[in-house]
Nucleic acid binder design. Sequence first.
DNA 1: GCATCTCCGACTGCATTGGTAGGATTATCC
DNA 2: GGATAATCCTACCAATGCAGTCGGAGATGC
Lengths: 157, 157
Amino acid sequence: MIFTTKAEYGVRLLVELGRQGEERPVSLKALAEAEGLPLAYLERIVALLRKADLVESTRGAHGGYRLARPAEEIRMDQAILALEGSVAPMTCFVDDRAESTHGVLCSHEADSGQGCATKLLWTRVQGGVFKALQQTTLADLVAFSTKTTTREPIAAA
Amino acid sequence: MIFTTKAEYGVRLLVELGRQGEERPVSLKALAEAEGLPLAYLERIVALLRKADLVESTRGAHGGYRLARPAEEIRMDQAILALEGSVAPMTCFVDDRAESTHGVLCSHEADSGQGCATKLLWTRVQGGVFKALQQTTLADLVAFSTKTTTREPIAAA
DNA sequence: GCATCTCCGACTGCATTGGTAGGATTATCC
DNA sequence: GGATAATCCTACCAATGCAGTCGGAGATGC
């Protein structure tokens, strides 16, 4: 399995936020109940999204979370990277992300001085994953979910 | 991280077999020493490849393994599937593989009767991974590895 | 000042992974 | 036929990471 529940819960959380208006913040408690997820665990997950500036928080009573940007401008590679930390296909894949010029390198090279045989494969796989993530925005998921299920907005706390 | 060492070691094993001629079988001991991998662990890994008919074995003295088909006809999706069991991006992804018509379905649907929001995303990601795997043959990896590193064939036992 | 919130760190049960141990079976060679 | 070299198979084990909990400490609105 590729992703952990952090990615699953985090994305679902984003989608739920995307459904709500971006005006008033939504409390985690409400989100947790809406999705049927453990509140305490969600707290730690949403912290990752906040650190990545995908979500804004307002503390105190009637506080909560809202998207930091419109859903169209949130790409899933950003979300997953924030949630999972990295998307390497293999432990030996030390990736100096996106901005680096030489892409990814395999740590075996450090050991033996030779490119290991699997490097080509993992590079292609990672490319495939990244492409899929980059091409999907939060708005896509929100549209998909509202099309499939019809659920009323969460009542204000 | 997506794949475990089973995939890594298994693919490296296949590549090493691809380098050798397909005539005489190569013993696991020789392969393990060539790649610097634990022999006992490789035994279990190569068993997966054999069950998937990617590799043939001959028992007894001077026995060993060889590719069941020419390297050009071994696609990496077959190899990875044999090694890892499945390539689902998420635990909730119960995939009735390839031959099924409706592709993948998310187990949340069984629970709540609604498609979960993340389904679209995971489907795309899995598609990207599979495409990358399908488009890569063992011959590609062998060519890549012989280009990068120059190593003499394993001496006969 | 009290009820709600966000925030943060420590702690825990569990499953999986990576790897080992030991032996049974099969074949070759002398 | 017996040593030897190999595949095969099952049970076992330690470490890691994941999913989730707990308790509390700061904000903030009423």
